[in-house]
Design a protein around this nucleic acid. Sequence first.
DNA 1: CAGGTCTCCTGCTAGC
DNA 2: TGCTAGCAGGAGACCT
Length: 276
Amino acid sequence: MPELPEVETVKRILQKNILNKTILDIEVRYDKIIQNQSKDDFINKLKNQTFIDLKRRGKYLICVLTDYYLIVHLRMEGKFFYMHNEPYSIHDHIIFKFDNSELRYNDTRKFGTMHLIDKNIDIYNTYPLNKLGKEPYDEGFDYLYLKPLFNKSNKPIKTTLLDQSIIAGLGNIYVDEVLFMSNIHPLEKTKNLNDENIKSIVSNSIIVLNKAINLGGTTIKSFQSSHDITGRFQNELLVHTKYKCPTCNTKILKIKVGGRGTYYCENCQKITSIDK
DNA sequence: CAGGTCTCCTGCTAGC
DNA sequence: TGCTAGCAGGAGACCT
């Protein structure tokens, strides 16, 4: 499940493979991936476009083309494969054909999305990027940014940290890690966090993401950034999918928070505050 | 407006 | 062994 570090890894790998390559043809085998155009418009616009640059915003990958931005969200299982003549997979849904190679968008669960936007539009102020909050790497991602947003939320902190309009880029795995490192219970009501808690979340978000990016992201079940590159961060996970707490050896509990599988240590992560 | 639930989709697994 | 019901999950849609 690609989160910010995985998308960053994909971006870096694609930069090596597809930069300056021109799309000669496109094959769309499953068109629900395409969000804001008809399949025909999508194909016509992308023909003869060159990949000029690749960027990332939160969990979105931004392909900068000659005249357009192609904004991709990999959701659960989206992957890009840079291929030559290898046989196709039934999960290859969109194929960008270059001179003697191609880029294949492969997505087992078909949850991924692609938005094609004109280059003269300010994409950061346009859907879907306009609804993203700051990401942990942004200037101004600090206690003063989070405090007022947290103060008005009655949701569990786990749910809040997954809200991309508040923090862009954290997903299920990394939120569990951040909460563990910060000694905060996932069900703690967001508005009840104290200043110390918020500062912990700020610093631990950056620490966890940095470490994950340096290790190429996490490989859990199906995510891989390209054929033979596998993230190594899963070896460093502290609570997510773990059985014993690395700090106190207590059994890790698995619960559901907002429908998401959530791991935590009941000894290290206690609900401390009462309602204001 | 905030918060809850349903939906998309497929591979995997528990249970019979 | 083979089948099926149930589950996982990011984020938008829809409802209260």
